[in-house]
């Protein structure tokens, strides 16, 4: 399976680092692309990934209110929720996409998110 994760540099990428530092084992399907902010994530990039055969796309950023750039994830929240609701109309199972918020200190939670998401997509295969 090819899963792609778009993570903001400040919270979730650091949270994934923290999971690594804590050696919390995770399935190996997810490949993380570092983003400055979830606000930088163009829904088209996610759609492009699906079009090119991604089995799942996971987006994670700072919790609302904690954005390193103040507002970035608020814009992202709207864009990503709209995308999530539109995916079925485009013909993409909504289980293949998830967006969530993981802080730099939530290493264990990040590992759980990866576990759950990987399992969810795997069950569609």
């Amino acid at each position: 399976m090819k899963l792609i994760g778009f993570l903001c540099n400040w919270c979730s990428y650091a949270g994934a680092d923290m999971a690594g530092t804590s050696r919390i084992q995770q399935p190996g399907d997810l490949h993380i692309v570092r983003m400055p902010c979830t606000g930088r994530i163009n829904p088209l990039l996610i759609l492009k990934a699906f079009q090119e055969g991604a089995d799942g796309v996971l987006v994670s950023g700072c919790h609302p209110g904690d954005c390193h750039y103040n507002d970035g994830n608020y814009y992202a929240r709207r864009r990503l929720e709209l995308l999530a609701r539109m995916l079925p109309a485009f013909g993409i199972a909504s289980e293949r996409f998830q967006y969530t918020w993981v802080s730099a200190s939530e290493g264990a939670r990040w590992a759980q998110v990866v576990d759950d998401f990987t399992e969810r997509v795997r069950s569609l295969q």
Binding site: D17, G20, Q26, G28
Partner: peptide, 16 residues
């Protein structure tokens, strides 16, 4: 990042 996001979180050599 092949340490925090890879070698440290996967134990299977082929996967990692």
């Amino acid at each position: 990042n092949i340490r925090e996001h890879c070698s440290w979180v996967h134990s299977d050599v082929d996967t990692a």
